[in-house]
């Protein structure tokens, strides 16, 4: 018997992983160092030229700013609302189970479908939103409103996901802690900030990892809602990369943008994981 049989048993899984994730990642990295235009049969190694161009590309920085704005705003709103909903639903009341399932509905609808639905609701002529507000706002057509409308839709859609994870976190907090705090005469707010929140920290960090990564790569919701308009004010990095790669077939530069997204996401993940590890230790 060899000393490391586990390596052998892991080999098939590693091979599959290498084939389906590591190889493509390396290939995209390789592509990003090329000037590669499919339609002209041009494929030339240009080193870091694409990255140099990226730094001077206004459209890239615009997309970067939009993505960052979208991520920060939507994730913070989802977190606050998600925790609030979870805490409310954690209380004992009649119909709790039903309520929990109902809350999950937005999360269960496929993104493209809900984006299409919101596109109609945001319509300034016959959309229900303006009707309810008695307003006449061009939600998706105004440079100020459009990105916020996208954030709002994302919050509507993914808050339930946050709430679900936080609810699971609440379940494992021992009830004794609450009881003894109550006996000591602690106020509800005090209990929430001194017991609930600290004990929820690991769950919150996991929620943050999931949500930040998803939000940073946002594509389908905004692509359906505004197509990046008006005038690219809602174009995110993923939409820009898609346009370069599949609309205009600039595989070199498109890969450069994708690699940049990959590294941003990587950095965010490392930061979160560090925080999480410190928390657990």
């Amino acid at each position: 018997m060899s000393r490391r049989p586990h390596v052998l048993f892991l080999a098939p899984a590693m091979a599959v992983l290498a084939a389906v994730t590591i190889y493509p990642i390396i290939y995209v990295l390789w592509l990003s160092l090329h000037r590669r235009l499919l339609i002209f049969n041009i494929s030339k190694f240009t080193g870091l030229d694409n990255y140099g161009f990226l730094l001077r590309d206004d459209r890239f920085w615009n997309a970067f700013y939009n993505t960052a704005y979208f991520t920060v705003l939507s994730v913070s709103l989802e977190l606050v609302l998600g925790i609030a909903i979870a805490v409310l639903l954690d209380r004992a009341f009649k119909g709790k189970g039903t309520m929990r399932s109902i809350v999950l509905i937005p999360w269960a609808i496929p993104t493209v479908v809900s984006a299409k639905m919101w596109e109609w609701m945001y319509n300034s002529d016959f959309g229900i939103l303006n009707y309810l507000l008695g307003a006449n706002i061009n939600w998706l057509g105004s440079p100020i409103w459009a990105i916020n409308a996208a954030v709002f839709m994302d919050v509507w859609k993914t808050t339930p996901f946050v709430a679900l994870l936080v609810m699971a976190g609440l379940e494992i907090i021992p009830r004794d802690l609450y009881n003894s705090a109550k006996v000591d005469g602690a106020s509800r707010w005090y209990i929430f900030t001194r017991i609930t929140l600290p004990l929820l920290k690991p769950v919150i960090l996991i929620v943050l990892i999931f949500r930040t990564l998803d939000a940073f790569r946002v594509f389908d919701a905004i692509y359906v809602l505004t197509g990046g308009g008006p005038a690219n004010t809602t174009e995110t990095l993923s939409i820009y990369a898609y346009n370069m790669l599949f609309q205009t077939l600039q595989f070199g530069y498109g890969s450069t943008i994708s690699v940049t997204v990959f590294f941003c996401v990587g950095i965010i993940t490392i930061l979160y994981v560090r925080l999480l590890r410190r928390e657990i230790e």
Partner: peptide, 11 residues
Amino acid sequence: QPEFSAIISRI
């Protein structure tokens, strides 16, 4: 596309 969109949104 973004240029024309900028015109009609007055950007």
